[in-house]
C-alpha cells in the first residue's frame, strides 16, 4: 500500500486552475521527486497534501485512509511532516527551542499541566531537550550557537528546518526545495544526508527540488508538473531526457532548467555514485512503518 496517494486532485483559485487532476503515489521508503518550472503547482500540491488547501475535487490518501479534509495539525500528528519554501521556523528563538517547538505533538501532557509545572510535564520537557540535542547531532549541527536562528546563515536554516520536520516524528517527509541557498557541495552533502536519513529512520520522502543533480542522485521516481498538470513521470534518468520536459523547462524560467539538458560531469558522477542506494524498484517496500526512529 502506498504511504501517500493523490487521486485526481484539482484545485482552483478563482479563474486559475492551479492543479488539474493530479494523481501520484509514494510508496514505502521511496524518495519521490516533484519537479517542474516555477508556478507549475508543486507547492500547491504540497499544500493540498498537508491540509493548508482543500482540493476542489479529488482525494488524498495516507496509508489507505482518506485524509483530504483533515486540518494541517492533524496531518502533522498522523506523520506527514513538511518543510516550507522560505524556511518555516520561529526566527526569534534558538535552534534548540525550535526543535522543542517542533516536538509539540510528542509532548504528551496537557497545556495546563505544563503551566502548573507537574512532574510529568517537567520530565517530558527534559526528554524533549535531549531529543533536540540528538536531532542536532543527526543533522550535523551539534555545535550550533545558542542564538536566535534569525542570525544563522540560510544554508544552516534549511538544514535546521529539516531537523524540525524530523522532530515532528514523521513517517513521510515533504521537503520544499531543501537545497535552496546551498552551493553544489552543500547540496551534494544534503543528498547524502537524505539517503542516510532514509536508511536510519526508515523515512519516506516527497521532495520539490530544482537542483537537478540532487534529484537525479536521490530520487527513485519523479513526477513532472507543468501548468498544474502532470507532464510525465518515471525514473529520473528517463524523465530528464523526455522531450516535453526539456521543452517545458526551456519555455519556463528556471535557470536550472538548462542544466537538465546538459549532463554535467558532476551530475553524472553523483548519479553513478548514488545509484546503488538510490536505484532499485519503484514498488519496493523494504521496511515497514514501524521502522521509525526510536524515541
Amino acid at each position: 500500500m502506498a504511504v501517500l496517494e493523490l487521486r485526481d486532485v484539482s484545485i482552483r483559485f478563482g479563474g486559475l486552475q492551479a492543479l488539474s487532476s493530479l494523481s501520484l503515489s509514494v510508496g514505502e521508503w521511496e524518495i519521490v521527486g516533484l519537479i517542474g518550472p516555477n508556478g507549475a503547482g508543486k507547492t500547491t500540491a504540497f499544500n493540498c497534501i498537508t491540509g493548508f488547501y482543500r482540493p476542489t475535487s479529488g482525494q488524498v490518501f495516507y496509508r489507505g485512509d482518506d485524509v483530504t479534509t483533515l486540518p494541517p495539525h492533524r496531518k502533522s500528528q498522523l506523520g506527514i511532516g513538511r518543510t516550507f519554501q522560505n524556511v518555516g521556523m520561529v526566527k526569534t528563538v534558538s535552534a534548540r527551542e525550535n526543535l522543542k517547538i517542533a516536538q509539540h505533538s510528542l509532548a504528551e501532557y496537557g497545556p495546563m499541566s505544563g503551566v502548573l509545572g507537574t512532574p510529568v510535564s517537567l520530565a517530558t520537557e527534559r526528554e524533549l531537550a535531549e531529543r533536540a540535542d540528538l536531532i542536532l547531532e543527526l543533522i550535523g549541527l551539534a555545535d550550533v550557537p545558542e542564538v536566535p536562528i534569525g542570525a544563522l546563515p540560510y544554508g544552516t536554516l534549511k538544514l535546521l528546518e529539516l531537523g524540525c520536520a524530523l522532530a515532528t516524528d514523521p513517517e513521510i517527509l515533504l521537503l520544499d526545495e531543501p537545497s535552496s541557498g546551498m552551493g553544489p557541495d552543500e547540496a551534494h552533502a544534503l543528498g547524502e544526508r537524505l539517503l542516510s536519513l532514509r536508511k536510519e529512520l526508515g523515512l519516506t520522502m516527497l521532495l520539490i527540488e530544482h537542483h537537478v543533480p540532487l534529484v537525479v542522485g536521490v530520487c527513485d521516481y519523479v513526477y513532472v508538473l507543468n501548468f498544474g498538470q502532470l507532464l510525465t513521470e518515471g525514473r529520473p534518468d528517463d524523465v530528464r531526457r523526455h522531450p516535453e520536459v526539456v521543452a517545458a523547462y526551456l519555455g519556463g524560467e528556471a535557470p536550472d532548467a538548462l542544466a537538465a539538458t546538459h549532463e554535467t560531469a558532476e551530475d553524472a558522477a553523483l548519479a553513478a555514485a548514488t545509484a546503488p542506494t538510490a536505484g532499485g524498484g519503484r514498488r519496493r517496500t523494504r521496511r515497514q512503518a514501524s521502522a521509525k526512529e526510536e524515541k
Binding site: T50, G51, F52, P71, P72, H73, S76, Q77, G81, R82, F84, G88, M89, V90, K91, T92, I101, A102, H104, S105, C164, A165, T168
Partner: peptide, 12 residues
C-alpha cells in the same frame, strides 16, 4: 510567528 508553520508542527 506563522500559523502555517505552527500547524505543520502539529499545533492546533
Amino acid at each position: 510567528d506563522d500559523e502555517r508553520v505552527a500547524s505543520a508542527f502539529g499545533i492546533n
